[in-house]
C-alpha cells in the first residue's frame, strides 16, 4: 500500500518493492500463525476432536453410555436436565463420579453422595472420563497430591471459609429448600480438593487465586485431622456441642435421678 503511494516518484523500484512487501507480509503471517499455534494448543484440540488421546477415547465411550442423556452429545448440556461440562475440567468429573453424586439417581434439589455406580468402580475409568472432559473443554485439574498441609492454619481457613455451611466440626448444615451442605466425614482428600476447586452444586468456587494450593492442602490437613481424631470419652454425640450433650445429660441424668428419688422415698 505504501508502495502505491510512492509509485509516481520512483518508477524503477516498483516491482522489487512489491515483491519485498509480499515477502514481509508472508513472514509476518507465518510468525503470527506460528506463535498462535504454539501458545494455543488447547483451542486447537477443541477444534479437532479427532486428536483425542487413547485414554480420552475410552472416556468418551463411558460418557456415551452413562452421561450423555443429561449432559448432551458434546457435553454442551441439555436444558432442564444437566449443565454443560465445557470448562468444568477433570477435577469436577473426578469429584462428582468418585463420590457417587454422578450419575444422579434422579433430578432433585441435592445431588447426594452414594455408592459409586458399578461402571465406575475402577478409578481408572473415572480418570478416563475426566480426561475426555478435560480434552474437549479444558478446566481445573486435581494435583493428585494432597499431603503436607498445616492443620493449624487449615483450621483457621476452615472457620473463615467453610464453617458457615459445613459447621465448625465439618458435620454439615442446612441450606435453603431442602438442600444441605454435606458432612465432610466420608470425603477423601482428593474429593475435598475437588470440591473447593470446582464448587459442586451450590458450593461457591474457591479458585487457586482465592485459596492457594498450599492453603487448600492446609484445609484438607485440618479436615483429615478432625476425621481421624478421637472424641473425648469415645463418642462425640454428633459433635454438635452443648445441644446434644444437654439433651443426653437431661434424658439420662434426670431419668436416673427420678428413679433414685422414687427408691429413696418408697416404703421398704
Amino acid at each position: 500500500m505504501t508502495s502505491s503511494a510512492e509509485q509516481p516518484r520512483r518508477v524503477p523500484g516498483k516491482l522489487r518493492r512489491r515483491l519485498g512487501a509480499a515477502a514481509r507480509m508472508l513472514a509476518a503471517l507465518a510468525l503470527a500463525g506460528g506463535v498462535y499455534a504454539a501458545i494455543m494448543p488447547a483451542s486447537q484440540a477443541e477444534d479437532a476432536p479427532k486428536t483425542l488421546s487413547a485414554r480420552a477415547q475410552e472416556g468418551k465411550a463411558l460418557y456415551d453410555v452413562s452421561c450423555i442423556s443429561c449432559h448432551g452429545t458434546n457435553a454442551e448440556g441439555v436444558k432442564d436436565r444437566g449443565p454443560s461440562l465445557i470448562g468444568v475440567g477433570s477435577a469436577a468429573v473426578e469429584f462428582q463420579v468418585s463420590s457417587g453424586r454422578m450419575p444422579m439417581a434422579a433430578q432433585g434439589a441435592q445431588a447426594e453422595r452414594k455408592a459409586v455406580v458399578p461402571l465406575f468402580e475402577d478409578p481408572k475409568k473415572i480418570e478416563a472420563l475426566g480426561q475426555y472432559i478435560q480434552e474437549i473443554g479444558g478446566g481445573p485439574q486435581l494435583p493428585g497430591e494432597y499431603g503436607g498441609g498445616d492443620p493449624a492454619n487449615g483450621g483457621r481457613l476452615f472457620r473463615v471459609n467453610c464453617a458457615q455451611c459445613h459447621g465448625y466440626t465439618a458435620g454439615g448444615g442446612a441450606l435453603s429448600s431442602g438442600k444441605f451442605a454435606p458432612p465432610l466425614d466420608p470425603a477423601n482428600s482428593a474429593q475435598l480438593y475437588g470440591a473447593m476447586l470446582t464448587g459442586p452444586q451450590n458450593m461457591p468456587v474457591f479458585g487457586d487465586n482465592q485459596l492457594t494450593v498450599k492453603e487448600k492442602k492446609d484445609i484438607i490437613a485440618y479436615v483429615e485431622y478432625m476425621k481421624n481424631d478421637m472424641d473425648p470419652g469415645g463418642y462425640g454425640l454428633g459433635r454438635i456441642g452443648p445441644a446434644t450433650e444437654g439433651i443426653a445429660i437431661f434424658v439420662v441424668g434426670i431419668t436416673l435421678l427420678v428413679f433414685t428419688t422414687l427408691w429413696i422415698a418408697g416404703k421398704s
Partner: peptide, 21 residues
C-alpha cells in the same frame, strides 16, 4: 448475624441464625 451461606446455583444468600434468605 453474618449471612454468608452463599448458594452459587440459586444465588441465594442464607443467614444461619434464623434462616433468612
Amino acid at each position: 448475624c453474618p449471612a454468608s451461606l452463599y448458594e452459587q446455583q440459586t444465588n441465594r444468600l442464607l443467614c444461619p441464625c434464623h434462616q433468612s434468605q
